[in-house]
Amino acid sequence: MQGHTPTPVFSVRDKRNLLFIILGLVPAAALAFWLHILPVFQGLYLSLFRWSGLSPKRKFVGLANFRALANDSLVWKALGHDVYMVVFRLTAVIVLALLFAGILHFSSRRKQKIVQGLFFFPNVLSVAVVGIIFTFIYNPSIGALNAILTNLGLENLTQAWLGNPKTAFPAVLFPTVWGAVGYQMLLLFAGMSSIPKAYTEVALLEGATRIQEFFQVTLPLLRNVVKTCVSLVVINTLNRTFIFIRVMTKGGPNDATEVLGNYMFYQGFENFKFGYATSIAVINFTLALVLTFVVTRLLKKENLEYA
């Protein structure tokens, strides 16, 4: 920082401070750089090569990987699935989270505590655990879902949920919503709680109903929080949701659940085309940037401030 000299307490004129800065900062910075930041640049760089990862030789091919991607019909299919996945999760997660946060807003403290705890719990379970539980639930012979449908007299709806290309994708996406709503609900609820009471009370005094007040006063004031939630969901969907697919269907049946993340994994770690795999990841990253931009843009309009 320029402009003012540090107080003697924190000045590097004291050689002990200099040593402390180096010893305190370097290990964390070096580790984060080595295994967290550097890999991003390496990924971008590798996407320009053809390389099996096993042989010492790698061949610079420029943008050839990306040209090959454009001709790979599975990439286009996966891209479409990714967009579908983002729209599906965004709608389901945000609508449910807003609904629950809105209801909590009108509930007693006790109820708020219980619901927050219960609804958030799935978020702390491992993707692997949630994926396995739902794989069992969808299982055609012992699965809980078919058993419930049979008990309800809806036997004609029972099926191999993950084996049928028509149902596999929604079936994989449901647990990703199940495990994510709680967190977004907490964020939205915290946002609602920080809106000064005066605003909502004025609306109610003016004769607005609770519902009107919610949609016309609370929700607009919540825009920035909603924007944060929406960006988080988009980014997480494209970076992490494919792990559910890895656990539950591996992209099948008949590529019905193939997404870019899973396809990257397949090309990299089963097909050992490391250059091609990273170029798929670059497309995935680009898609995340574009979709985040589009979605936050849609929510932009004018910013309302109450501070």
């Binding site: 080595w34 295994l35 967290h36 930041i37 550097l38 890999p39 991003v40 390496q42 990924g43 971008l44 590798l46 990862g53 980014i235 494209l238 970076n239 992490r240 494919f242 870019l260 993340g261 990257m264 994994f265 990299g268 770690f269 490391f274 795999a277 990273t278 990841a281 670059v282 995935n284 990253f285 995340a288």
Partner: peptide, 14 residues
């Protein structure tokens, strides 16, 4: 905010 998917192959190599 780094893109996780992009880093998987490089991390494996490192």
């Amino acid at each position: 905010m780094l893109p996780l998917v992009l880093t998987l192959v490089p991390k494996f190599l490192i």
